[in-house]
Design a protein around this nucleic acid. Structure first.
Lengths: 236, 236
DNA sequence: CGATGTAAATATACAGCGTATATTTTCACG
DNA sequence: CGTGAAAATATACGCTGTATATTTACATCG
């Protein structure tokens, strides 16, 4: 019954486990991650991981949380950089949204983990992922709010008037979140998120390449079209 | 070694297998489908399915093909109905794109199977899925083409001029596909696809509800905003 | 300093999975 | 009626997540 403990201190940290999990995920896809494979790579037996993550689900959940915050951080630093450089509304908005796609392209499996269907029976706890999903865009809300207050942004007429039923919901959200924006602008921002998200999704699954070749270029066009429609003057 | 063959003719058809697979998928998610579970439900042993689908991948691939064509058919019948009723450009476009979301909401797992990350190690053969993915939108291309030729559609200025690098790619696609549309309009249509797709994706994963409550209402607003921006007059 | 309690690894086991192989049954056709 | 192909089967292998009980290592304290 001798148990060859490799070294005395072969205690693994939760961070190591997550790192290996992320790497394996990026190599074999979101669903191609296994406790046993992780343990193998760490020189550990599989049940040992249970000390850190009682279930595989829990590991996945923390991976999702990490990914969400990583995306948010990427966008927030992009925004912070723009602000410190004294960039204008156009440039700031562009950099932030650019960071969205850049992060997705750089970490496709994490992005799919967040915005796709990750693992067999797994369903993310929406009460946990909900706020996380909104965080990356909080800053865009602020940006639009500032732009609208300063009169730089005009409200596209094609979104007006917002149908009453929809406006009711939006007002509920607005009072709950403390935002002070007209319903139209919230609609326009949400439309912007969907546009961006849709493009990234189509790109990640290679649906847009046949049409436009370079999705990055088309993404830029879409961003600029969006901002121009808000009445912002293109730079340069 | 007696082998109790339940009835003489317990030969199962490929269609039965697919049907059961689709049902189990809709119950347990895209990744929650198993050869053994299917076989169990059909009163068959798992290896028997190998006569119809040499690998699980092949079964998934045919499911994907079926789903793509089902979505295309749904959109095409919507378009056909609109045409037989003599509906105008606005109404026809709306009905077709509405069918996109309606199908996605009615068959979320199939939609995720198509536009998401379906199964563990599985990667769809892009040469097969590529044309399939474009089919549902061929009809929208035609619609816009007709609308533009008849002068009903105007080209939004915010997408002009199309950057040269992008325009080159688009021209290549245009000549290959025999479409006769200005680059701008192709960009606008692709943007429309991304908008629609993004909204549906966000809805399916419950990311838009917190903001706008009823995604169906917001979808309608987005469609109408899109068409108004093309210069089409709203009906009624 | 040595005993002790706890945390973290382990061994073992179970049920389920996809898949490979070889065997047996069934049925249509010559 | 006999034969051959098609389709089911049994069996087996290695993989998976997970449960249970056991053993080790380490920090803490009398």
């Amino acid at each position: 019954m001798s148990r060859p403990r490799k070294e005395s201190g072969r205690t693994v940290t939760a961070e190591e486990i997550k790192a290996v999990a992320r790497r394996q995920m990026s190599e074999h896809g979101t669903a191609g991650l296994s406790l046993r494979a992780i343990a193998r790579e760490l020189g550990i037996t599989a049940p040992a991981i249970y000390n850190y993550f009682p279930r595989l689900e829990d590991l996945i959940t923390t991976l999702i949380v990490d990914a969400f915050t990583a995306l948010a951080v990427a966008m927030e630093t992009a925004g912070a950089e723009a602000r410190t450089e004294g960039a204008g509304l156009w440039e700031t908005f562009t950099r932030i949204t650019r960071a969205y796609r850049a992060w997705a392209v750089a970490h496709p499996t994490d992005f799919q983990l967040i915005y796709g269907n990750p693992i067999p029976g797994y369903h993310a706890p929406t009460d946990l992922t909900g706020p996380l999903a909104q965080r990356p865009f909080a800053q865009l809300f602020d940006l639009l709010q500032a732009g609208w207050r300063s009169g730089q942004i005009s409200l596209p007429e094609e979104y007006q008037p917002v149908p009453p039923a929809l406006a009711g919901h939006i007002r509920a959200y607005r009072t709950k979140s403390g935002l002070d924006l007209p319903e139209v602008l919230i609609c326009v921002l949400l439309s912007g998120w969907a546009r961006i998200h849709g493009q990234v999704m189509l790109e990640l699954f290679h649906h847009s390449q046949p049409f436009i070749g370079d999705p990055g270029l088309f993404y830029e066009l879409e961003l600029s079209a969006y901002l121009r429609r808000l009445g912002l003057p293109p730079p340069g």
